[in-house]
């Protein structure tokens, strides 16, 4: 006996298991970042000057570039899923490949940004703003790394499943895409909150 609804949707919910599970996971992720944003708001209100005096300028140009990179990776992620919907494994490989490359570009830009700060002696303990900056962006980076690991697997050895169970494979890609868009979504909020306001 196999576990039902891994490929097709259950009639009364209209969902397959993975999708429901992933949305539940994302709901908990929203609450995780909710806790962090709540902390940010409370600390911000508690400090008369924000960012506190002496906070170094953040690299807005680099962060804008990274925003564009993540948005691009999001759209290629969904195009890779659309390719599977058209039964086009080559297209999937191409777009998923671009997504992965974009993920790495994001990480490189981010490390460059961190390096620029750290080499000038700006560390998390510098002041409470830098603490918020490092903690929130680094948690986001961890999410990017997690997503990349899954996508590399699905792009490489994981894609063999396309030949044995194509329905389930495109479900996996859809779920991975949902997660990746969420990572993008978090960045869309982090970017103005940390860099611009």
């Amino acid at each position: 006996m196999d576990i039902p609804y891994t490929v097709s949707a259950r009639k009364d919910t209209g969902l397959y298991n993975g999708k429901l599970g992933l949305w539940l996971f994302l709901a908990s992720e929203v609450m995780l970042f909710g806790g962090l944003f709540s902390a940010l708001v409370l600390i911000r209100v508690g400090n008369a000057v924000w960012p506190p005096a002496g906070t170094p300028e953040l690299n807005v140009a680099l962060a804008t570039f990274n925003t564009a990179v993540l948005i691009t990776s999001s759209v290629t992620a969904i195009l890779s899923w659309a390719s599977l919907a058209k039964k086009d494994l080559g297209g999937f490989k191409k777009y998923m490949g671009i997504t992965i490359v974009c993920g790495f570009i994001f990480l490189m830009a981010k490390s460059f940004e961190y390096y620029g700060k750290l080499s000038h002696g700006v560390v998390p303990s510098t002041n409470v703003f830098m603490g918020v900056y490092y903690t929130m962006t680094f948690l986001h980076v961890l999410h990017v790394i997690g997503g990349l690991a899954v996508m590399i697997y699905l792009w490489g050895p994981g894609s063999k499943m396309w030949h044995t169970n194509p329905g389930r494979f495109s479900n996996r890609i859809e779920c991975t895409g949902l997660y990746w868009h969420f990572v993008d979504l978090v960045w869309i909020f982090l970017f103005p909150v940390l860099y611009l306001l």
Partner: peptide
């Protein structure tokens, strides 16, 4: 558990 625990995870990280 799903919705209440993550803020503590955030707090733990902080």
């Amino acid at each position: 558990l799903l919705l209440a625990f993550p803020p503590l995870e955030a707090a733990g990280v902080l």
